[in-house]
Amino acid sequence: MAALSSNRQRIDWPGIVFAMLLSTAIILPLVVVGTWAFTEIWRYPAVVPQQFGLRFWNQTLSRSDVWGALTLSLQLSTVVTLLSALICLPAAYAFARLNFPGRNILFFSFLAGHAFPKFGLLIAIAAIFLQLNLIGTFWGVVLIQLVGTLMFMIWIPVAAFQGVDRRMEEAARDAGAGPLRVFWSITLPQAGPTIVAALLLSFVGTFYETEGAWLIGAPGIRTMPVLMISFINNQMVIQYGAVLSVLLWVPSFIALMFARRVIGGSAFARGFGA
């Protein structure tokens, strides 16, 4: 007890330094990009832009391809996340709770996709998709993104289901609940916060994924990040890219807000094995 209270009074310098370094590394680039998005003129060596304005916002937002890409990305992420949940959650439950032949091999194969260099795998998949006429289609991109989400939509929920105390489930059986009721009233709420974390990861991950989206989607399907890359590559106006970046923060920001509401901090950490 004594050690604890004296600790509280002492200033934790290494902690403060670490926190400052971390915030600088994360926040500084965001500030720079955020400033660029609202800048009209900013010439070297000025520290602060000479002229602020919304000109580039007007220009960017008046483009139909930006709106198209944004809607497409949101649709894509939603569809992929829902499909992934539909496929992966029952599978995760089975992996966590049932003992069937080939369980370990199957579980490993779900994760194995991430053990190889991703681009090589994508090329191979693209070759198959080409034969199936899936290149350049919405569902082609959905499929490739689905592969990308398998990892955390299986792995994290398996951990979540395994983490649910079996005694809690047995206590519910004891109180008169059948297996389905136990799953609904005990297992799912217990694993819930962690599963929400996995869903968010899947949504945000799909939203920002570029390699697969570009390789499979081009030229017909252009998601936000793909569009941003083409902006940055084709036009030397920094502001376009900056405005799109700020736009791209929106979903992750919303996701974070949502995460904070749905899950307490401790539960969020638990999702990652803390």
Binding site: R167, M168, E170, A171, R173, D174, A177, G178, Q190
Partner: peptide
């Protein structure tokens, strides 16, 4: 099955539903 038995069990870990 347990839900059909007229028994009530108290576990060592109490197994209360934390939610």
């Amino acid at each position: 099955p347990p839900e059909k038995r007229p028994t009530g069990m108290v576990f060592q870990s109490h197994a209360l539903w934390t939610h």
